[in-house]
Design a binder for these strands. Structure first.
Length: 573
RNA sequence: GGCGGCGUAGCUCAGUCGGUUAGAGCAUCGGAAUCAUAAUCCGAGUGUCCGGGGUUCGAGUCCCUGCGCCGCUACCA
């Protein structure tokens, strides 16, 4: 049995959950966790919200409430959204909770005392009206290169050039619109160059990481690590634990990953075993796996391991960081500010969470950015789920009820059938590589197993669909509606095979569609508690219970409605 | 500007170490079947693998170059 600790990147609490979050770091993690639970591994799944930072603080000011109110609101709503998608974290915390504050401050202190933090003084823009230091992004002005208006402090969108905020002409605060003053401030920096050798040695042991992740890291390392500020001047954040440092807080991305630890502590406490978190975080046998979007790679593979390694307690370092790329929407980059996304809350008003799980799994941005379109959503549900899988289940069960008194019995040759090459005629020699060398159904099942292990959810989906196609073909070839008339046992054989195939699919598909598979199993009177190894355990018979369609088709009008809603823009923000 | 990635069928995408006639699903066309939610099954066509050059017995794959798109570029989080 393996011990695994899985995390999804903490989500920024300035809005509810959208499908980009789901595709980037939640669904893939949940599928991996569910698969491992079926295997019987000791696995916990931890996450939460990242509650601090300027955007939340500004939003709070606009609404005239405390930032904590905003963070708590979205934390709650996200939890609900995750529930609606059957994404089951063992704990969903938030970084504004007291425990997290204490742990983060200790982390800072330990790093400082170990000699890896330097203090520096620098000049920065300051908005006097809002009494706030301004991040580069919150300053606007005239670009010093192309002289056009509306350049931000970090970059000019017109000419694309990077800008040193201090060189902006006629700078003004994006928050108040007023001219900012330049003010001296002090910050603490993590001395990353001092970690370089250690990091390179550690990363050399991670050859099994995904290529996109390794590329990203190497580009950082090869540019040369520099010191990086881990504090900010803000009123909404974790105060740094030093004398005379009022208004200085930890930079959110310093404290956010620490949230994985504090969230695990919260989980342990809720379980009534406050030290249980140590069993995971302090045991070198634990595999720590961070699921996240590509934008988070450097934080989790450079800064986070560096910080972890200098604590007093022997924390484990990440075992794997299977980062996903981004999900686009109808061919365009998703953007919350342009309201170009699909909010889970909106989605759930119209469709079942399982359907989104399926579509995002089938089209996950595993190796490169992928595109979500409503038309594709409809196609995948109607074809893959409704027509191919749903119909296989329906025709099998209805047939058994109608012609075989609702029951089929195990046949002698069942193992042989599962070892026969039942699918090759539909494929030619140049099928995708993961279809090659598939001799029989057990090979396909092994392929699915391996795909889940390696976070290759798309491949798992393709192989499961291949199984359902085999079922439909077998049904057509054997023609039980003909054989039933002269040879009852022959029809029994066909239907037992199809039932057994569906039973195996109900296990194989559970990590992706747990509720739909539960429904499928219920129709077959199969138990809810099962494990991965049950795939091989053929029952003596199947008694079919009440039958209803597993899925239903999505009409064109429903899709048109979603496209309209997308154009209008959601109002849930 | 620098670094990295991407560009394959009408669409969404696979293509392992360089190896035979470049693949899947959807869409399209033709056929079969009638157990099933008109759901299924079989068959067929479709390609300047972004352009150009190079290495090689052999290139979608490796190298150079041009074009287009995207990400990162350390103070967005």
């Amino acid at each position: 049995m393996e011990k695994i600790l899985v995390t999804s990147a903490l989500t920024y609490a300035n809005g509810p959950l959208h499908i980009g979050h789901v595709a980037g770091s939640y669904l893939n993690a949940d599928i991996f966790v569910r698969y491992n639970k079926l295997l019987g591994n000791d696995i916990i799944y931890i996450g939460g919200t990242d509650d601090y930072g300027t955007p939340i603080s500004i939003k709070a000011e606009e609404e005239g409430v405390k930032p904590r109110v905003i963070a708590e609101r979205y934390n709650k709503r996200m939890k609900k959204d995750l529930d609606g998608l059957n994404i089951q974290l063992d704990n969903f915390s938030g970084t504004s909770r007291p425990r997290h504050i204490k742990v983060s401050q200790d982390f800072f202190t330990n790093l400082l005392e170990a000699g890896y933090v330097n203090k520096k003084t620098l000049n920065q823009f300051y908005d006097e009206k809002h009494k706030r230091f301004l991040a580069d992004r919150y300053i606007e002005g005239i670009c010093p290169h192309c002289k056009s208006e509306g350049a931000r402090g970090d970059q000019c969108d017109k000419c694309g050039k990077l800008i040193d905020a201090m060189s902006l002409i006629e700078p003004r605060s994006k928050i108040s619109g007023e001219k900012p003053i330049i003010k001296e401030t002090t910050h603490w920096y993590i001395n990353l160059p001092k970690f370089e050798k250690q990091l390179r040695e550690w990363l050399a042991t991670k050859k099994y990481w995904k290529d996109n992740v390794l590329n990203f890291i190497m580009s950082w390392l090869n540019e040369g690590l520099i010191e990086r500020a881990i504090t900010r001047d803000l009123n909404w954040g974790i105060p740094i634990p030093l004398e005379n440092t009022k208004g200085k807080v930890l930079y959110v991305w310093f404290d956010a990953p620490i949230g994985y630890i504090s969230s695990t502590m919260e989980w342990a406490e809720k379980k009534g075993q406050p030290d249980l978190w140590k069993k995971y975080w302090l045991d070198p046998e634990t595999k720590l796996i961070h699921f996240l979007g590509k934008d988070n790679i450097p934080f989790h593979t450079i800064i986070w391991p560096a910080v972890l390694s200098k604590q007093k307690e022997p924390f484990i370092l990440p075992y794997d960081v299977p980062a996903n790329e981004f999900l686009n929407l109808e061919g365009q980059k998703m953007s919350t500010s342009r309201n170009w996304t699909v909010w889970v809350e909106d989605y759930l008003k119209y469709f079942d969470g399982e359907l989104l799980r399926y579509v995002l799994a089938a089209n996950a941005p595993e190796t490169k950015d992928s595109d979500f379109t409503w038309k594709d959503f409809q196609n995948k549900i109607n074809n893959d789920l409704n027509n191919v899988l749903g119909n296989l289940a329906n025709r099998t069960f209805i047939f058994i009820k109608k012609y075989l008194n609702g029951k089929v019995n195990k046949t002698e040759n069942i193992d042989k059938l599962f070892a026969e090459n039942l699918f090759s005629s539909g494929l030619n020699n140049n099928t995708p590589f993961y279809f090659d060398n598939l001799e029989d159904i057990s090979d396909i099942i092994n392929g699915i197993d391996e795909s889940y292990k390696k976070y290759k959810v798309r491949r798992a989906v393709q192989l499961i669909l291949l199984l359902t196609r085999i079922g439909n073909r077998y049904f057509d070839i054997e023609k039980p509606w003909v054989t039933i008339k002269k040879n009852r046992s022959e029809a029994n054989e066909t239907l037992f095979f199809c039932s057994e195939l569906l039973r195996r699919i109900s296990i194989l598909f559970t990590p992706i569609m747990p509720e739909a598979m539960k429904k499928l199993r219920k129709m077959m009177n199969l138990a809810d508690d099962f494990e991965w190894d049950d795939i091989k355990k053929v029952p003596e018979s199947f008694k079919i219970g009440e039958v209803s369609p597993l899925f239903k088709k999505i009409e064109d009008a429903e899709i048109e409605k979603q496209l309209e809603l997308l154009k209008e823009g959601s109002e849930i923000l």
